[in-house]
Nucleic acid binder design. Structure first.
Lengths: 206, 206
DNA sequence: TAGATTGTTAATCGATTAACAATC
DNA sequence: TAGATTGTTAATCGATTAACAATC
C-alpha cells in the first residue's frame, strides 16, 4: 500500500485506469468490471485486478467495481485529488499550446507560472498568466512552492533549465526537449518526444 | 534480423539510441561504447549490447562503435533512412505547434497534409500547406500514399478520425487525444497524453 | 603485450497470466 | 440458487543482468 513496494510499471498504468473510469462515468456508467476495462484498454483483466490489489480491495465479487468509488480511490493514490501547480518553461509554439490546453485542470494540474528567455515575450500575457524572465525562475518557484514543471524549450536550453528547476526545489519534470536530462536520482523526469513514437512505428512499416 | 522476432520493447529503445548517437555526432564524437551510451541514457551497457545484437554486429572489441556507422545502421533498421509523409488531423493550438515544429524532417518525417473540420480554417495555409476539409481526407491520403498520421483533435472526434484514417490506408497513428482508440490489430497506434505522465509523477510526490 | 570492449550465454529477476476458491 | 466477478496464488513467460571468452 506504500510507495516503495509498488512497481513503477504498475504506477504507470493507474492513470490509464483513471482516465478510462472518468470516461465511463461521463458516459453514464456506474459499475464496471476488470473485463470491461480490459476490453477497452487492451490490458488483461488479471493484470488490472493484480495492479489494483497493490493498493487495497475495491471491487465486489459477482458485481465488479463502483466507478466513482474506484475513481476516487485512484485519485487519492495518485495524489491528484488536489491541484498541483506546474511551471512551464519555454513559451514557443508548443509552450503556448500547453498553456492554452484546457485538459490539465480537471485532471489535477494547473499551469501557474510561465517562463521564457526571449525579452520580447517577457511581460506578455497568456490568459491570466504573465510570461516571466528566466532570471526570476528560482525566486518565483520557491515562493510558490512549486514542485512540478514542464520544459518546452529548444533542446540546447533544456539541461540548464532543468538544473535551475531542480535547484529551485522542483521534484518532477516533464520534458518535451529531445534529450536525456542529467538529473539527481530523487527528481522524477518523464519525456515526450513524438519522433521517438514515429520512429518506433516506422520500424513496422514497409 | 527480421521484425517478428524482435521484442517490441527493444524496438522502442532503438530510437533512443539513435537520438543519442546523433547528438554525440553533433558534438564531434566519432567513436562511442556501450558504457558511454549507458552513462548518458541510464540504460545498462549489457542491455544496449543485447538490444543491438538482435540486428547484427556493429562494434569492435576493445574499441566500441563507430558512431556514424551505427547511426546509419539504426536508421536503416528503423526505416527512417527515407522521408515518411505524415498527415496531421486537427489544427488547433497543438496541431499548429506540430505543423511548425522543425524537428521532424531531419529525423525521417514530414507533415505533408493538414486537415481540420472547422470551415473557418479550411483553405488557410500553414507554411506551404493548406488546411483541408475532413471530407477530402480519404482521397488525399490515398492519392499521396500516406501511411502515417497524427491526431490532434479533441477527444470526441478522435475515434471517428481514426476510423477514416485506417479506411484510407494509414497504418501508423500517433494520437494526442486522451482516449484509447479502437483500431484493427494490424494498425500501430501510439499515444501522447501529458497528463498521464504528470499523474504518474504525482504518485511519488508528497 | 596489456587494456578495453564486444557479443553471447546462463542466471537472475520481475512481470504477466491462468486458474480458482471465495463470495456477492 | 446460479451466474458472475473478485482477489490471490502459483506457474509461466519474458526481460535484464552478470560474467566471460573472444579479440581488437
Amino acid at each position: 500500500m506504500g510507495q516503495g513496494d509498488v512497481p513503477d510499471i504498475v504506477v504507470g498504468r493507474l492513470p490509464i485506469y483513471l482516465r478510462a473510469l472518468k470516461r465511463l462515468q461521463a458516459d453514464g456508467h456506474e459499475i464496471t468490471s476488470s473485463h470491461e476495462l480490459s476490453r477497452r484498454l487492451g490490458i488483461s483483466s488479471a493484470q488490472i485486478r493484480k495492479d489494483l490489489s497493490h493498493f487495497g480491495e475495491f471491487g465486489k465479487q459477482g458485481t465488479g467495481y463502483h466507478i466513482s468509488a474506484l475513481s476516487n480511490a485512484l485519485e487519492g493514490i495518485l495524489h491528484v485529488d488536489r491541484e498541483w501547480h506546474v511551471a512551464l518553461v519555454g513559451v514557443g509554439d508548443l509552450g503556448r499550446a500547453l498553456a492554452h490546453y484546457g485538459g490539465f485542470v480537471d485532471r489535477g494540474f494547473r499551469i501557474s507560472l510561465l517562463f521564457d528567455s526571449d525579452p520580447a515575450k517577457i511581460g506578455q500575457k497568456i490568459g491570466d498568466l504573465t510570461i516571466r524572465s528566466l532570471d526570476d525562475l528560482a525566486q518565483s518557484i520557491t515562493e510558490n512552492g512549486i514542485k512540478m514543471a514542464m520544459i518546452a524549450t529548444p533542446a540546447g536550453a533544456a539541461q540548464e533549465v532543468a538544473n535551475h528547476l531542480v535547484a529551485a526545489g522542483v521534484r518532477s519534470i516533464l520534458s518535451y526537449a529531445p534529450i536525456v536530462l542529467s538529473i539527481p536520482d530523487e527528481v522524477h523526469v518523464q519525456y515526450i518526444d513524438p519522433v521517438i513514437h514515429l520512429q518506433k512505428m516506422a520500424f513496422y512499416l514497409d
